[in-house]
Design a protein around this nucleic acid. Structure first.
Lengths: 348, 348
DNA sequence: TTGAAAGCGCTAACAA
DNA sequence: TTGTTAGCGCTTTCAA
């Protein structure tokens, strides 16, 4: 009938405990008490109040509750790139945990721009959320300091060495060096000796970390890759094709290739296609990320599982622990990636 | 130095305009005025206040502002399934618009459960957000009524016939019937006469809508598909393979197939692979959704573009119009899908 | 069991 | 230009 009344000026008026108080004759505090499960209140009073509350469609106002309780029940989810499905994996994992506690994920996207990242930390300080899961390409000293100064629960993912700085936050990361090491070892265990590597720019941390895994696995196996077996390019299909063409110019060609991500691996597939080289019989191949593509492409692509769901789940769990239980000492979680072997590397 | 002080009990104390007021000797309202661009205030006062504000790292408290202004600057984004990348396309489009206005997207996931959906509408009434983009499989009368009763800005997507009920909300949908019609017409224009169709359960609205497009295009072209050319199954790769095998049992076989989504189309590819049928030379194929897979699979898959980014963008725009400009009369937008032709249907 | 009252931090109408 | 004050809706302490 009159769930909510809409006055002339179009402003929507909420139902409040005061409306219920007026209607029932009780005070607002009695109404508040009656409406919360745990509040002390006589059964009859509660019933009368609940009846009216239902009639007028009462729902408590969150802003008021937040102002009073200093709790938003929201978590800021800061990602550099809203177009990257990897992060959605993290969101999935995290949301699972949030939901259990009645919390919501707030999408905050920074474009990887340090200015925006600092702005998001201001948003955190303004209590846009009770905490933050923070993905960034570059955790600079300035950023780390600002995070510490928020004195708010923050989990950093995506950076193994965030622990270089004094920290008041948590970290959850996957060891990507270990990832390329596993990939390389897999190819070695398949009997390959001439193993190439195509990766991203070594000026980026991610580029260096992944290359390091390949090199260390080769060295540990007593293999010295020819310099021509290594090529850097963009983390894209095109980048992979270009790098792949380069590797294929070697004589002898490598018999197996580690790609620093799935897109580059697919680019490598294109390069082989153009040169009439069969995967996996002439060339074994493994990628990284375990993207949706890797299982649907033909031949299906072996890959390294980066556990983005787990990162999200664990990050959220650490956050809830700080928020709900008041933990303050920092925790750092480093996950070991998994490997999934598909057609592209089953050459022997 | 003392950006934020942390008392014994671990509760973090915010900096407020009162702290600044005390420190500068001005009143809290002068501080508030000085801190907003538009507030009247002498330059010297403003400077002094801003200096202190910077020192103590002041950021205005959102809950207080929300309580006062009745505006959260958040939009609830209700989706049935957090695992579906289609919705993330919508989120991308919508976020673009939100960001321009300083709004944030709040992820709310209902699992398609009507109970949760009603709960989310309560959340909306409690001002979890200023409005809602609502994706649901089933907009029942009850749900529609409840939406209307919130008196809050809501955009429904995903349902062409939401207009059946009296409505106070907006809708943005893609015409999926038109989608399969376009797909079918494309194959007809390629010279095909024996065109098969594999689709989802006709008990679902989505299944019926898509089938209708195929049938109407065939009829309009004066073609009568043999009943054996039509098969229903799950909207998955396996479903597509099963349906595909059935179609391939016909004699003569169809020379072209419309699949009701990309996954089923990929399943069809598998079926053809098993039977040694070449795509596109022996069999033309077109899917629907323009998923990421469709461009990377080989042969690349022709598909129908469902414009999820546009749906998100338009939904957000309608919402902002209601919130910022106070529009109240409902708007309904029906988008025409696009077609993208790739290798799989270029048979002739 | 119930009520009065203060306060969370901000904004804005009004007064000085 | 600046200050006073009330109030957004809720929770909670204290008193009755």
């Amino acid at each position: 009938m009159f769930m909510i009344s809409i006055p002339q000026d179009g402003v929507i008026v909420m139902s409040t405990i005061y409306k219920i108080a007026k209607r029932t004759g009780f005070s607002s505090s009695t109404v508040a008490r009656a409406l919360r499960e745990d509040g002390v209140c006589s059964p009859e009073t509660r019933e009368a109040i609940q009846k009216v509350a239902n009639e007028i469609g009462y729902v408590p106002n969150r802003a008021a509750r937040t102002l009073r309780n200093q709790r938003t029940e929201k978590i800021m989810f800061c990602i550099p790139d809203i177009y990257n499905s990897f992060y959605f994996g993290m969101i999935r994992g995290a949301s699972e945990v949030f939901e259990r506690h009645g919390f919501f994920a707030l999408l905050c996207h920074t474009g990887g721009d340090p200015k925006n990242e600092l702005r998001m930390l201001d948003n955190l300080k303004s209590r846009l959320g009770d905490g933050m899961i923070f993905v960034s390409f570059d955790f600079s000293k300035k950023l780390i300091e600002t995070i510490n100064e928020t004195h708010m629960p923050v989990v950093l993912t995506n950076s193994t060495d965030a622990g270089d700085f004094p920290q008041a936050y948590d970290t959850v990361c996957v060891n990507t060096t270990e990832g390329t090491r596993m990939a390389t070892n897999h190819l070695i265990s398949q009997g390959h000796r001439h193993i190439g590597y195509i990766g991203g720019d070594v000026l980026t941390k991610v580029g260096r970390e992944r290359l390091a895994g390949y090199l260390s696995a080769m060295e540990a196996a007593g293999l010295t890759p020819s310099p021509g077996y290594r090529s850097n390019g963009a983390f894209t299909i095109e980048g992979g094709t270009v790098c792949g063409m380069q590797l294929l110019c070697n004589n002898p060609m490598p018999t197996a290739v580690v790609a620093a991500n799935d897109l580059m691996a697919i680019g490598m597939m294109r390069a082989c296609e153009m040169r009439g080289i069969q995967i996996p019989s002439d060339m074994a191949l493994i990628g990284m990320d375990n993207s949706e593509l890797s299982q649907f492409i033909r031949p299906s692509l072996s890959s390294i599982i980066m556990k983005e769901d787990d990162i999200g789940r664990l990050s959220a769990t650490l956050l809830m622990d700080r928020i709900l239980n008041g933990r303050t000492e920092p925790k750092n979680i480093l996950l070991k990636p998994d490997i999934i072997i598909r057609e592209s590397s089953m050459s022997r």
